[in-house]
């Protein structure tokens, strides 16, 4: 990490400049994170009055808890579905926008704004469309012979939160895929066309491989999004239910800690999440380091 060649003298000033950022980091990030780490090693009552060191027992209990294992499974299905759907739709729409000529800009405008819709709001919009008693989509499904009730049917509840989460994320993927497509040198595509490669062959042999770095970057971002930013989707609609059908890891840590006041288990869950974020961040950064030169 290099600094500028020409710098300013100063002893106290740089620390003063860094002070606000570091103060916030220590008070609201490092201290709570350390507390989670240590808390995970203790058994505590709900009021934090009695504490007993239990080593890794909280983790052992966690990974033997069927509800937690179920949440891992749900998170896996949920995240894969959200990432796959939003990546596939983003790519298809970006490819189409590339072909749209002069209208590409207009389409892009009409497609990117859902980025600004909060996950919780997206969820409420989808709930309304699929509401068993007033929803238009639910009515349409009933006409097709499918009875839809995401308050009772766990699979349908999961489908609802997946759709709402993916809907909001398509615009992000579209933007990056579109930029990636525009960065592919035209002569490459033209050469392939002259050699007789049709549009689908060109996509499979040239465009998709050249988009691989973008796709990989987006995959990491989308998994991170599906893991951590979709809390609002679940909280605003299904509340983790019916039963535990839509309880993801992040939703569970909130529920056990904030509503259930089970501090030991909640801390252990926080530590597991911490390991997941750290891994995703490391992967993402290694990738960016290779692509952009800092």
């Amino acid at each position: 990490m290099q600094a500028k060649r020409v710098i300013f003298p100063g002893r106290l000033l740089p620390y003063l400049l860094l002070a606000p950022q570091l103060a916030i980091t220590v008070v609201f990030f490092l201290w709570p994170a350390a507390e989670a780490l240590f808390g995970a090693l203790y058994a505590q009552d709900a009021f934090g009055l009695a504490k007993q060191f239990v080593g890794l027992a909280n983790f052992e209990a966690l990974f033997h808890d069927p509800a937690y294992l179920e949440a891992i499974g749900t998170t896996f299905v949920f995240s894969s579905a959200v990432a796959f759907l939003s990546l596939a739709l983003g790519l298809v729409l970006a490819l189409a926008a590339e072909k749209a000529g002069r209208l590409a800009g207009l389409y892009r405008t009409l497609l990117i704004w859902p980025y600004a819709v909060a996950p919780a709001v997206a969820a409420i919009l989808f709930w309304f469309m699929f509401d068993p008693s007033v929803g238009i989509a639910a009515r349409g499904l009933r006409a097709l012979g499918i009875s839809w009730n995401h308050f009772l049917n766990g699979g349908q509840a999961l489908a609802l939160v997946i759709l709402a989460s993916a809907w909001k994320q398509v615009s992000y993927n579209l933007l990056f895929f579109y930029a990636g497509l525009r960065a592919i040198p035209r002569p490459l595509i033209e050469a392939a066309a002259i050699d007789g490669a049709g549009p689908f062959r060109r996509f499979a042999a040239i465009i998709f491989p050249l988009l691989a770095p973008t796709t990989f970057f987006l995959l990491v971002v989308n998994i991170t999004y599906a893991f951590f930013d979709t809390f609002g989707v679940i909280h605003a609609t299904t509340g983790g239910g019916p039963g535990r059908a839509t309880t993801t890891l992040v939703y569970k840590v909130f529920k056990d800690g904030f509503e259930g006041l089970d501090l030991g288990a909640s801390s252990a869950q926080s530590v597991v999440l911490l390991v997941i974020v750290a891994t995703l961040t490391a992967v993402q950064f290694r990738h960016i380091e290779r692509k952009v030169h800092y």
């Binding site: 490092l30 904030f258 926080s270 911490l274 961040t281």
Partner: peptide, 18 residues
Amino acid sequence: LIFITLMLPVEVRILPTY
């Protein structure tokens, strides 16, 4: 220290931060 904050979204340190 600043870099580390990337790895600590609020969802991860929810209760202690509260």
